[in-house]
Computed example of a mutant assay.
Amino acid sequence: MGNQGEQVWGLLSGRWGFSRSVIREDSPADLLDRAEAADLLNISVGTFGGYRHETALRAAVRVVGGVEHWPRAVLEEWSAARPGDAGKRVRGGRPRGTGDLLPREEIRPRLAQLLDLDPAVTAAAAADVIGVHPDTATRTLAALRAEAVGPLLAAQPSLTAADVTRRLRFPGQAASAALAAAQGLRRAEEARAYVLEVTGLLGAAAGGPPDVLAPVRGAASLAVPLAAGESAAALVWDERWGWRTAPTRADVQSTATPPTGDAVRYLGARIAPQPADVVAAYRGRGGRRAPAVTRLPGESLQRLIPAS
């Protein structure tokens, strides 16, 4: 690999600038981070994430600037001591059950850089490169792609998936999903004033302003967090089936199908009831176990949302 290739890989895996061999000779005392350790051992970052819990590596870990490092000599000794062909390492990928190896605050900017370099990158490849769970990569890449489409959609409401592919180089399926998500986010912003009315009427029961939720299948949804001591974690409005309670913080998300459960209540018989009716149903512990009405996302919200 030439110097330019080394620098690109350094960017993707967190090793900014030139490779170590360009700067100086290797030393047994070198402290290597996860990406560098994986490179030394000729395995993926995800695979090293599974091995790092073994006794020898766990005992040798050093935390520098909040990031785990391992001495080069320890890594080389550990590799040499493993039986079989280089420890019979698995071929890439992440071990089942392995969580994110990258600090949470670094995941989004690192994936944004990767997406800039390769607009067609898959979640599996991105997870392997930067050391996060594939589900994390899937969610974050979807959000980044939707945000990239947003300005294009604002300038061209008739934007198509083919336009997205041509202008942003996202592959077909990713372009379609990003466009649907961007459209859902736009409709959520259109509904924000209505949801804010409900928030205002909740008074002290509201725990903060409404949050726009990440779209699932392009659906617009917002959540009003509730204060501590309330009977639910939040009230969620979804353009497909209206208002519902979210019993716990884990339930505060957009979903592919209407959530159900003993503590889930759907408030009102319309997609967008009058704000006072929503609050009355919540405070009166009224509601249904399932939505009274459902609709497909994407239809205009203007005729559904009550005039303020």
Results as ranks from 00 to 15, higher is better:
A177E: 13
A35P: 00
A232I: 10
G218E: 04
L213Q: 06
T122Y: 12
R62F: 02
A232H: 04
R34I: 08
G10Y: 03
A56S: 12
G200A: 13
S27W: 05
R303Y: 03
L114K: 09
D277T: 13
D33N: 13
P258H: 01
R62Q: 15
A307P: 12
A120I: 09
Y51V: 14
R96V: 15
A228S: 14
A126I: 11
V216E: 05
R187K: 06
A124M: 13
L226F: 03
S221Y: 00
D163N: 12
H53S: 08
E76M: 14
V63Q: 10
P119I: 04
S221F: 01
V67I: 15
V195P: 08
D39L: 10
V61F: 02
D163K: 11
S176T: 14
V293Y: 02
I107N: 01
Q4C: 11
E197T: 15
A232W: 00
N3H: 14
R139F: 10
R186W: 09
A56M: 12
L57P: 00
T257Y: 07
G50A: 04
R24S: 09
V61D: 00
R82T: 01
P215G: 04
L40H: 01
Y194T: 09
V45C: 02
L111R: 09
S158Q: 15
P291Q: 00
Q4H: 14
S308G: 11
P225E: 00
P258F: 01
A281M: 11
L179S: 05
G207H: 06
H69R: 10
V149W: 03
T140F: 07
L304G: 11
E68H: 13
A137I: 09
Q7P: 03
W237D: 00
A214W: 01
Y51C: 08
L235H: 06
G87H: 07
A177G: 02
V293A: 08
R72Y: 07
L12N: 00
S308Y: 12
R295N: 00
A86Y: 13
T136K: 06
A290H: 13
A181T: 06
R15Q: 10
V195I: 09
G87S: 07
R34T: 15
D277E: 15
Y51F: 12
G92A: 12
L117K: 09
R82S: 02
G172Y: 06
V216M: 01
S300E: 12
G66H: 08
A143G: 15
A112I: 06
A162E: 13
G84L: 05
L301E: 05
G5S: 12
G14N: 01
D100N: 12
A205T: 05
N3P: 09
M1W: 07
L235R: 07
L12P: 01
E147Y: 04
S13V: 12
E189S: 11
R186F: 08
G84M: 03
V61P: 02
A35I: 02
P247M: 06
V64L: 15
R110D: 01
G46V: 05
A227T: 14
Q156R: 15
R91G: 13
T47V: 12
S176V: 13
E6H: 14
E76W: 04
V45T: 09
A193V: 13
A188D: 01
L179I: 07
Y194M: 07
R288E: 11
D262M: 08
L32C: 07
H53Y: 13
